[in-house]
Write a protein that binds this DNA or RNA. Sequence first.
DNA 1: TACTTTAATCAGAGACTCTGACTATCTCAA
DNA 2: TTGAGATAGTCAGAGTCTCTGATTAAAGTA
Lengths: 144, 144
Amino acid sequence: MAEELNVGLLMFIAHRAMENRVFAAVANAGYGDVTIAQARLMARISSTGSRLTTLAESAQVTKQTAGFLVDQLERAGYVERVPDPADGRARLVLLTDKAKEVLPLANGEAAAVEAEWEKHIGKRRMAQLRETLTMLREITDPYL
Amino acid sequence: MAEELNVGLLMFIAHRAMENRVFAAVANAGYGDVTIAQARLMARISSTGSRLTTLAESAQVTKQTAGFLVDQLERAGYVERVPDPADGRARLVLLTDKAKEVLPLANGEAAAVEAEWEKHIGKRRMAQLRETLTMLREITDPYL
DNA sequence: TACTTTAATCAGAGACTCTGACTATCTCAA
DNA sequence: TTGAGATAGTCAGAGTCTCTGATTAAAGTA
């Protein structure tokens, strides 16, 4: 069944496999209360704290959605909100120690998956893939 | 901000951009009643008809979810269900003429996006990208 | 100071997905 | 041929994610 899927779809397949693996590893390590949507947002929180609006923009969701997800992350102990000293309207979302345990774990699994991929396609192709995807990001990432 | 995102995340960014473009083109052409989830499923329906279970498996959702989406596609006139002559339990989901108008349109926009990408990264990199992603599919697509 | 913009929240609704339970039909082995 | 188990699909209920619209509070600006 060697159909000619478009490149976007092929990316979807690989990305989903990666996400499932990382999600499973995180859940398996005892952090089973984080959902994929929450994790996607959490991954974008800066180590020095992020505003909700920034988070929403970079994750490409509305600020209401971002607020909803941060509420849950806060309740689960992964983030906390503090007043933004630079702006009385804003609050900074900060990662807690608990989050700082999970994130390396998730990154580690992602690296492991990448290593498996590299084993399958070879070092050269993997390097080209990363280079090409980074170039594509320049024209496909509305945030950066 | 040249962070080192993992390859899975980079794919997510590009894929989402592609999906948004295709979705917008379809909506713009007057087919604004199809959602992304419905479209993802519809794209997997074989021209000779597909069973719900097959569809669910290939889209990686439960058969209940697939059934829910097919219900909506049926109500909107994009698919119809007929008895499967080969199995009394099963029904075949068939694309209607309306669906056969939309799908080329969606594929056309996807091709247009790919052409833009190729213009940005070059013909050689585009060919390599497709080749590499196809190889990755071998180990990341649980369906095929 | 008055007007406009921005950050965040509240309220309500719709869409997507899942688990569990069930019926009808098919397959296969005794 | 018949009975047990597997498979295709549906119904019911719940949780999660996402959106639009309206509101409040604080900044920025003329």
